[in-house]
Every structure is written in structure tokens, then in C-alpha cells.
Amino acid sequence: MSTDIGAAHDFAERQVRIVDVAQRQIGIVRWRGDFYALSNICSHQGGPLCRGVLSGRLGATAPGEIVLDDTVPLIACPWHGWEFDVRTGRAILDPTLRVRTYPVRVAAGRVILDLDRVGAENVLASEA
């Protein structure tokens, strides 16, 4: 099932918008021009994941330092702070834990969500 969820230019860069589609709450993320879609339900304890902080991945090359890797979008659940990779839905510190992701694409300036197809992780894996 493909669902038109709006004009691409209405989705701000580095923002999450939560949409209700087919009785599911799905967060739509625009990050560095690309679109991602993931479930709003955190797989840790069921928190409203997509209302959490969206940012690039913070890392370091040495203790005391914080550097930003903007190529990796993470969303941190507002309940317990667990971070999920927006692209794959996987918790970065527990790869066995993931939230569902959905294919999302832009066609003729419209953002189209495909609810019955495989998620972003599988797409990324097939591209690798």
C-alpha cells in the first residue's frame, strides 16, 4: 500500500514529523536530503520514539572529546534515551533491538510511504 503523505518541500531538513497511516504512527525523517520512515513505538519499553532528539551521531577519538558524525542520523527515545539509527531502525548499543522501518520515496515532489514493503535496513543491505 502506497500512501502520499505530503509535499517533499513541506518536510524540513533534520526534523521528524509523525504521521498516522493505516492506524500506525510513523516518524518521517528528512536528513541530508534523504527521507527515512520508522515506527514511533520504541522497542525498548514502548516509548514515543520519534518525539525524541534527532541528531547526528556523537563520537570521539579520545576521552573528553565530542565530535559529530553528521552522516549517521540517530534518534534518542525521550523515555530512556536509547539511540536508534534512523536508517536501519537498530538500537546502536543493542543490535538485536530494532524498530520497524518503512520504505519511503519521493515521486513528483510528493513523499510516498510504502507500508507493505521491506524496511530501510533491507534496502541498505541490498545496496551494499
Binding site: T61, G81, A91, L93
Partner: peptide, 15 residues
């Protein structure tokens, strides 16, 4: 705690 607060200590690369 690390799973929730990793952002504060990103220099840690393991549990």
C-alpha cells in the same frame, strides 16, 4: 545507564 546516556560519554566504544 550507558544505553541511555551514551551521548555524554561518546568516547566509550563498548559496554
Amino acid at each position: 545507564e550507558y544505553k541511555g546516556l551514551r551521548r555524554e560519554v561518546p568516547w566509550l566504544r563498548r559496554l
